[in-house]
Design a protein around this nucleic acid. Sequence first.
DNA 1: CAGCCCGTTGCACCATTTGCAACGGTCATT
DNA 2: AATGACCGTTGCAAATGGTGCAACGGGCTG
Lengths: 249, 249
Amino acid sequence: MSQTVDRALSILPLLAEGPADLGQVADRLDVHKSTALRLLRTLHEHGLVYRQSDQRYRLGARLFALAQEAVENLDVREIAHAHLVELNEKVGHTIHLAVYAENEVLYIDKVESRYPVRMYSRVGKPVAITVAAVAKLLLADLSDAERRAIAEKLDYPMYTARSTPNAAAFLRELEKVREQGWATDLGGHEESINCVGAPIRGADGRVVAAMSVSAPNVVVTAEELLTLLPLVRRTAEAISRDYSGTPPK
Amino acid sequence: MSQTVDRALSILPLLAEGPADLGQVADRLDVHKSTALRLLRTLHEHGLVYRQSDQRYRLGARLFALAQEAVENLDVREIAHAHLVELNEKVGHTIHLAVYAENEVLYIDKVESRYPVRMYSRVGKPVAITVAAVAKLLLADLSDAERRAIAEKLDYPMYTARSTPNAAAFLRELEKVREQGWATDLGGHEESINCVGAPIRGADGRVVAAMSVSAPNVVVTAEELLTLLPLVRRTAEAISRDYSGTPPK
DNA sequence: CAGCCCGTTGCACCATTTGCAACGGTCATT
DNA sequence: AATGACCGTTGCAAATGGTGCAACGGGCTG
C-alpha cells in the first residue's frame, strides 16, 4: 500500500538470503542505486540492517531484539510458563509451548532439564508442521475449509518412515486429534523421539496454544510416555482455566 | 533519511512494548490515523505486524523467520558448529558461541546435551554483558577508548555476590582477559553456574567470536571446569584456523 | 597512469504520500 | 430503542517527500 515502505521491507527477505552490496539490492528492487542507498540507510538507522566490513549489508541485531520482545508479551506464554516448569519438574522431559499465527506454527516457550533456559527453537522455520504434536493440535482446531486449504499447500517431507506422508493422511490425523482432544508424534520427526501434546483453550473453547512433552526412546518408551497423557492434559486444562479466568482487560 | 520508511519502522519498537490500536499508533507517530493505517497495512503485508482478534496490532511472525535466517548465514557460526559439537561430545556440557555487533553481544549458537537443538538464548537482550565469559572476551578485544566508553554506559546488576560490581572492576577484568587470552564467569550470573571461554580470531588476529563451556556446580566444581581450559582453547584455535583459512571470497 | 567499478551527493521534477472530511459500524449511555 | 461517541476505513486534492539523473571521488586493476 505504501510503495516506499514496501520497497524498504522487501530488502529484508532479500538480505536474509545472504549479504548483498548496494548494486545487488538496487537491481533486485529494480530501483536506482541512490534510492536503494537511502532505503538501506533508513533500515540501518533502525538497526534492522547492518553494514559489515566489506561494505556489504546484512540483517541487523535489532531483529533479534524485536523477535524476542514479540514473544515476551504473548500473554498465553506468561500464564503458561509456571505450569510448564511445574510439569517439567514432575516428568523431567522437555516441554514445548506453541501457537499458530499467520500460517505459521511457532514455538514460544520451552522448558528443558533443570535450569529454565528459554529457547526459541526453529522459530519461524517450517516447524515440522506436518508431524509435530503441537502443530496437529493447533491446526485441528481450524475450520474444515481452512484445514483442507492448508493441508494442500503443505509439503510432506519424510523425516522418518513414520512421518505423515500426504495431505489425505494429514487431514485424517487432524480429524482424529480433533476428536480425541490430544495428539502424539511417535518418531515422525526424529526416529528416536516421541511427543504427547494437549491443547490450551480460551474462554470461547477455541485452541489458543498447544503444549507437548518430548522424550527420546532411550529414556522412556512410547508406551511409558503415553502414561503421562492424563498429567499433560490436566496441565493444559489448568493453563486454559488460568488463561480464560481473567477476561482480557 | 526516508521519512515514510522511518515512520513505518518506528512502529516496530512501539509494538514491541505491547499491542496497540490504530489511534495509539497514530498518536505516538504524530501522524494522521489514515497515514498510520497505510503504514500498518504495508507492515502487515510483509508479515512484520499482525492483527489480533480485538483489531489491535502486534509484532508478526516474520520477524522470527528473519532473525532466524540472519543467524543462519553468519559464516563464523557455520564454520564453528562442527567444532562445538565435537567439543560437546567430549565434555558433555553446554557450549555457547557469541559475537559482538552494534553494541550488543549475541549468542549465535549453542550445543546442549546429546541432540543438537539450536537455541538463541536471550538473543538481543542485555546478555549479562558484564559477567558472561564470552562478553568479556569480545569486549576485551576492542580498543582502550571503546572499552572505556562502553564500560561507563553499562549497568552493573548484581546477579550474585560475585557479579562484576562496577565499571572500574569490569575494565580491570577486561584487561586481565586481554592478557591471558581466556575468560571465566565463576558464579557471576547464576550462583551455581561456572563458565570458561576462549576467543576465536580472524586472519588479522582480531576477535570475531567467542565460545564458552558452562556447567553447574553440582556436576563439576569450578576447579574441575578449569582443567578443561586447554581443550577449550585448542578448540577455539582450531575454529580460528578454519575461519581464517579460506579468505572471504 | 588510465580506466573501470562502486558508493555517494545535489538537484529538479513529479509521483507518492499526507491530512482532511465524510461514511459506516460497534458499543455504551440515557 | 434511540442517541451519541468512538474507531477504522475510504476518496480526494494539495504539496511534501521520494525518485532518477548526472556528476564526483576514491579504490582497485591492468
